[in-house]
Design a protein around this nucleic acid. Sequence first.
DNA 1: TTAAGTGTACTATTTCAACTAACACACTTA
DNA 2: TAAGTGTGTTAGTTGAAATAGTACACTTAA
Lengths: 121, 121
Amino acid sequence: MIAIDYKDSRPIYEQIVEKFQTLIVKGVFEADSQMPSVRSLAMELSINPNTIQKAYAELERRGFIYTIKGRGNFVSSGKEYLKYKVGEIQIKFDKLCEEAESVGVKREKIAAYILGKEMSL
Amino acid sequence: MIAIDYKDSRPIYEQIVEKFQTLIVKGVFEADSQMPSVRSLAMELSINPNTIQKAYAELERRGFIYTIKGRGNFVSSGKEYLKYKVGEIQIKFDKLCEEAESVGVKREKIAAYILGKEMSL
DNA sequence: TTAAGTGTACTATTTCAACTAACACACTTA
DNA sequence: TAAGTGTGTTAGTTGAAATAGTACACTTAA
């Protein structure tokens, strides 16, 4: 179902996150279908269940899956992810705007720049 | 002139950067005045010259000082820093806007949000 | 109630990148 | 030429992140 690339320098859990994210975004899994259990996938890949657990926790944080304790992990609908993602971006814009204002760049100027009406801030 | 706090968990070079940045922003140093040499400051603080070098390289990257090989490091005018800082912020806005567009958020919407005309993205 | 499945928490170990140091080199000025 | 300056390369240290080991807790079905 999924394979680890040991030539890849990235951590194992990150590779797993990335692969499932791609599959889910592509719509390979049906919404609410069950993910492989942490143990079975760990067994299959010959790694520790905690590493799968870490990957699944990250996938949940990103809104790709949801967990029911004692039952398993399940695929959530793509919309959940989009909502989360947009929320994260909004927070980043908030912080960046504050940073810009702290060096004297007004919001009007930022908006104009984003709309392409100004060449620079 | 400056002191290292070994109780502080941050790396030494970062502490040095932060302290000089504060002093320069406050206008304690005249523009074009000479910074302590990497060796003299290293001696004074009983650390390795390379650590000072690293701090100075970062201060130069941020536009606070400039280097003349064989002569020393010198304080640059505050305006240089502002220019650099605004440039960095601009790059961050560029990246963030691309990220937003990749999940379907239009630039018009972003601009409206920044101006407070929309409650969320 | 029990057994076999599920996720979770805690701790220990390993690994790797960041930090710092040692030292040699190159440029500038007097 | 000597004494100051910054720079580059390499090596050692160290602390946080990643992974593993193990025990615990929840869910379901027989």
